[in-house]
Computed example of a mutant assay.
Amino acid sequence: MKKLTFWGRDEKDERLLVECMLGLKTATCTPKVWCSSSEDVGEVGDEIQVFTKLGQLACKILITEVYDIKFGDIKGEIGEKIARGENSTLDEYIKDHIFSWEKDLLNDGIILDENTLIVVEHFKLIESYIDYNSLGHKVKVF
Rank of each mutant, 00 (worst) to 15 (best):
G85R: 05
G85L: 07
G85C: 11
G85Q: 06
E86K: 09
E86R: 09
E86F: 02
E86S: 00
N87T: 05
N87P: 03
S88A: 14
T89N: 10
T89I: 09
T89P: 01
L90S: 04
L90H: 08
L90I: 12
L90Y: 06
D91L: 12
D91K: 15
D91S: 14
E92R: 13
E92I: 07
E92F: 14
E92D: 13
E92C: 04
Y93C: 08
Y93G: 06
Y93A: 00
Y93V: 03
Y93H: 10
I94N: 04
I94A: 06
K95E: 15
K95L: 08
K95F: 11
K95H: 07
D96S: 13
D96I: 08
D96N: 14
H97Q: 09
H97S: 08
H97F: 12
H97Y: 14
I98N: 02
I98C: 05
F99C: 01
F99N: 05
F99D: 10
S100I: 08
S100L: 13
S100F: 15
S100R: 02
S100K: 03
W101Q: 09
W101E: 07
E102W: 02
E102T: 09
K103P: 01
K103W: 05
K103D: 14
K103V: 05
D104V: 06
D104N: 13
D104L: 12
L105A: 10
L105P: 03
L105H: 09
L105Q: 04
L105R: 04
L105G: 04
L105E: 02
L105C: 09
L105I: 06
L106E: 08
L106D: 02
L106Y: 05
L106G: 06
L106M: 08
L106V: 00
N107G: 00
N107E: 15
N107Q: 11
N107I: 03
D108A: 11
D108S: 13
D108R: 13
G109D: 02
G109M: 06
G109I: 07
G109R: 10
I110D: 12
I110Y: 01
I110W: 04
I111L: 13
I111F: 09
I111H: 00
I111C: 00
L112Q: 12
L112N: 03
D113G: 09
D113E: 12
E114R: 14
E114M: 07
E114N: 14
E114Y: 07
E114V: 04
N115E: 15
N115K: 15
N115D: 15
N115P: 06
T116G: 03
T116L: 06
T116M: 06
T116K: 11
L117D: 15
L117Y: 10
L117E: 15
L117F: 05
L117C: 08
L117P: 01
I118M: 13
I118G: 07
I118C: 07
I118H: 02
V119H: 09
V119K: 06
V120P: 12
V120T: 10
V120Q: 02
V120M: 01
V120C: 10
E121I: 10
E121N: 06
H122C: 13
H122P: 10
H122L: 12
H122F: 15
F123L: 04
F123P: 06
F123Y: 15
F123R: 05
F123I: 01
F123S: 02
F123D: 08
F123G: 10
